[in-house]
């Protein structure tokens, strides 16, 4: 006897589609709007390159944040970690260390902080909020110690080229950000590690009973996020040609916002890499477009907050529907 369980078709209506695709539609609408306002400028090669350059570092931090949010946690210390890594690399190179080992140490610093967060959250069972808030505080302090409160500059040209050099007239950080995004997407999509992260984020208990090492999974997500944010911090130092304890601190808020925006892109409301990049694009396009229109930066800040509220509300609506 055969039972035919026809899959329940998701009830689609135009309203639901709009909620579903709301974030992507918002991005398209922003692009159309700014293009209509300044057709001579907005979609030119120079400006698109500008936008990509401006969001490349945020994209990397947001990619790191996505990993942690896939397992159902979040990390407040990412931006601070990236500042510390960038400052450490700058400080080491000014102290005479060649570029390659300095960068390597910078990456290890990020990885260690990530592992620390992971141990606190997964093994000592601190809430992610408390643990990463505490590490953020300490890491900022370390960054002040490393920079002695000043801005480190006069970094080697070879290092600065990482952040400022161009290939085919497009800045290197854009390629690096795209490469990292593709790798993270593939990790989340195709590897057992990535699928385990999604399982843990979906249901810890079932995951555990199915033989997934939940603690190790969470630890690995935090560790990977720390390492990736170190990449972002080192690139930022190269891009600015300087390192300071506070540079890039706005990336924390924006990375969380981008992931939240991204969660509204897909139906299941999970953190996902493609969605995060849509979120990053919205933030970048909005800032660039409003700058081009000459909108006051205080107003820009208000609008950014409103977009985050809209995104969270949209994903909330969807959760309730399900």
């Amino acid at each position: 006897m055969t039972t035919t369980n026809v899959p329940v078709q998701p009830r689609t209506s135009i309203g639901k589609f709009l909620v579903q695709g709301g974030t992507t539609i918002a991005l398209l609408a922003l692009i159309v709007f700014f293009f209509a306002m300044r057709p001579d400028v907005f979609l030119t090669f120079t400006n698109v390159r500008n936008i990509l350059f401006q969001v490349s570092i945020l994209a990397i931090v947001a990619g790191a944040q996505t990993l942690v949010m896939v397992v159902g946690d979040f990390d407040l210390s990412l931006a601070a970690t990236s500042s510390l890594s960038g400052s450490a690399v700058a400080s080491l190179m000014l102290g005479g260390m060649p570029m390659a080992p300095a960068i390597l140490i910078g990456l290890v610093v990020g990885l260690l902080i990530g592992i620390g967060n992971g141990l606190l959250v997964a093994y000592l069972n601190l809430s992610a909020f408390v643990a990463t808030l505490a590490t953020m505080t300490s890491v900022i302090g370390l960054a002040y110690l490393v920079t002695q409160g000043t801005t480190l500059f006069n970094l080697p040209d070879g290092f600065n080229a990482l952040g400022q050099g161009r290939l085919l007239n497009v800045p290197l950080p854009v390629y690096i950000a795209i490469a990292i995004a593709v790798v993270l997407w593939a990790v989340l999509r195709f590897t057992t590690t990535g699928r385990k992260w999604y399982a843990i984020g979906g249901n810890v208990e079932v995951s555990r009973l199915s033989g997934i090492n939940v603690r190790r999974g969470r630890l690995m997500a935090f560790a990977a996020a720390g390492l990736i944010s170190a990449v972002a911090g080192i690139l930022l130092a190269a891009r600015l040609g300087s390192g300071s304890a506070v540079q890039g601190s706005d990336n924390l808020l924006f990375s969380v916002a981008a992931v939240f925006l991204g969660m509204t892109v897909i139906k299941s409301g999970q953190a996902n890499l493609v969605g995060t990049m849509v979120g990053v694009a919205i933030i970048g396009v909005m800032s660039n477009g409003l700058n081009i229109l000459g909108v006051n930066s205080y107003v820009q800040q208000v609008v950014t907050g409103l977009i985050i509220i809209a995104a969270v509300t949209l994903s909330g609506l969807k959760t309730r529907e399900r």
Partner: peptide
């Protein structure tokens, strides 16, 4: 308690050690 909503049907069936 029994399923993980965020991953596919196939992965739910072959979860964890069975993947």
């Amino acid at each position: 308690l029994s399923i993980i909503p965020s991953i596919s049907v196939a992965e739910n069936i072959m979860l964890g050690e069975r993947t």
